[in-house]
Simulated scan of single mutants.
Amino acid sequence: RLCVSVLGGEQSVRRVFEHPTFWAMASRNYENLEEGIARLSPEEREQVTERLHDPGGEITDDAVVQTLQEEGRMPPEDPPPGGAPGRDDRGPSRWG
C-alpha cells in the first residue's frame, strides 16, 4: 500500500526507504539474487548481463502478473488511491 501511495504521488519515495519492512524484504531478495547468480554458469551470467543492458528491456505481461496473483505468489493490486494512473496508463519509465 505504501508503494501504491508513493506511485500515486501521495507520499515521498523516502517513506519506502524508511520503512523496516522494505529493508527486510530487500535483504531477503538480495540474498536470493546472490544465491541464484552463484548457481549460473559463466555463459548464463553473460546472457543475464546482456539482457540487463538491453535498452528495450522486458515488461512482465499482464496475464503473467494475473496468474501470479491468482496463485498467491504476488499480492493483488489494490485500486490506486486518488485516481492515480493504472498500470497501462503510466507510459514507459526507466524501470520498464
Rank of each mutant, 00 (worst) to 15 (best):
P75R: 03
Q47T: 07
V65T: 01
E35W: 07
E31Q: 14
V65I: 03
L52T: 04
P76R: 11
E70L: 06
R39L: 14
E50I: 11
T21S: 09
V48Q: 07
D61Q: 08
P20Y: 02
P76S: 08
E44C: 05
D61H: 15
E31F: 11
E70D: 07
I59M: 06
N32D: 06
I37F: 10
Q69T: 04
L33P: 01
E44I: 04
E44D: 11
E43T: 05
Q66D: 05
S27E: 15
E58G: 02
S41I: 12
Q66F: 02
E44R: 15
F22W: 11
S41T: 15
M74A: 05
P55F: 07
Y30S: 09
A26K: 14
E35C: 04
P75L: 04
A24F: 11
E44W: 07
L40K: 04
L33A: 12
G57D: 05
N32A: 07
R51H: 12
N29Y: 11
Q66S: 03
D62M: 04
V64Y: 09
V64L: 13
E77T: 00
P42F: 10
R39I: 05
R39V: 05
V48E: 09
R51N: 13
L68W: 09
Y30L: 15
L52W: 10
A26M: 15
L52D: 08
L52H: 07
D62E: 09
R28T: 09
E50M: 13
L40T: 03
P42Q: 09
R51Q: 14
P75M: 02
V64R: 08
P42V: 11
R28H: 08
F22C: 03
A24K: 15
E77M: 01
R28L: 10
L40S: 03
F22Y: 13
T49D: 07
N32I: 01
V65H: 00
L33N: 05
E31W: 10
R28K: 13
E70M: 02
L40G: 02
M25L: 14
E50Q: 15
Y30A: 14
I59R: 12
F22I: 02
A63T: 01
T49W: 06
F22S: 02
E31S: 12
E77Y: 01
P20W: 03
E31M: 13
R73C: 00
P55I: 12
E71R: 12
L40W: 03
E71M: 13
V64M: 12
E77K: 00
E43R: 14
I37K: 12
P55V: 10
